[in-house]
Design a protein around this nucleic acid. Structure first.
Lengths: 151, 151
DNA sequence: ATTAAATACGTGTATATACATCTAAATACT
DNA sequence: AGTATTTAGATGTATATACACGTATTTAAT
């Protein structure tokens, strides 16, 4: 669906403003598909992101701060997300002995199994809905990084 | 900043998966700038979106459902956002006489003034941070719509 | 060595997101 | 007409987002 139909508006200041809105809308669109796919595993978008980050470093341990700076949405309240993963026994918290301020998070066996099952399912879903050739994806990545280059 | 630095990860399944993550990250990045700019006006991202939609139709009236389907994030709880705008006296609620189920939302004078001031400020901020030529923006819009074309 | 500053993370609050449920009103069905 | 279904929107719940603040621990400064 064209952006114009999606948000029922045709009045954009210029193509750049439209592009910004288009990025916001597309992100919402992607998140919606992901959340739907994750539902059968009882995971939210953010919980899944944390599990993926833990998997990426496994079996190396990782503290809350390291998780936070790897999150897509940097303002995520990682302690609280970990709370929920801990209740479901998908991760374990331990105080680091090297630095007692740090809380080290570890994937449990249950966590690994759930992550494996959900990753396969989500990757398939996302591949099915994200219609881009490899070349187009490269182009899109370039343009998004150009957009953010003021930072 | 490159996506790899932003989320401290270099392991992507393919360029398409990276593009999806890049869209999500860029959306977060844009929202952050917008929220910062809106703060001085005491508005959130979503409250601003509702005000913009009301302005787009002004002085024509518009009901809650019509606002909802124009929102960028379709799951927005519009009645609750309107609650907050009403408390700040930026909008007014009236029950439609044609269909008493409908609640019609109108911008107040205060609302119009605040919207004008904030729009100028935000448009400037967004233009400053969103670095794209008109041509690049056209390309980006095309690629995002291609990405979503499975829908 | 003692105090000051910085860091890690937990917690609190307001709002948003996602989704389910409830109520009133409008429409459709027989 | 009388009942069923649909629609609009308010409301409830769990989690997330954004941000401020508190506490314990570590590092730096004097």
């Amino acid at each position: 669906m064209k952006l114009e139909q999606a948000i029922k508006s045709t009045k954009f200041k210029n193509e750049t403003q439209k592009a910004a809105l288009n990025v916001l809308y597309t992100a919402w669109w992607l998140k919606t598909y992901m959340s739907k796919g994750l539902k059968e595993f009882g995971l939210t978008h953010e919980q899944y992101n944390v599990l993926r980050i833990l998997k990426g470093k496994y079996p190396e341990q990782i503290c809350v701060r390291d998780i936070a700076c790897r999150m897509i949405e940097k303002n995520s309240n990682v302690p609280r997300i970990v709370d929920r993963l801990e209740i479901k026994k998908l991760v374990k918290r331990t105080t680091s002995q090297l630095d007692k301020r740090e809380t080290v998070i570890t994937l449990t066996h249950t966590g690994i199994l759930l992550l494996e099952a959900s990753t396969n399912s989500i990757d398939q879903t996302m591949e099915a809905v994200t219609v881009l050739s490899e070349l187009e994806a490269v182009q899109l990545n370039k343009l998004l990084e150009k957009l953010r280059s003021s930072e």
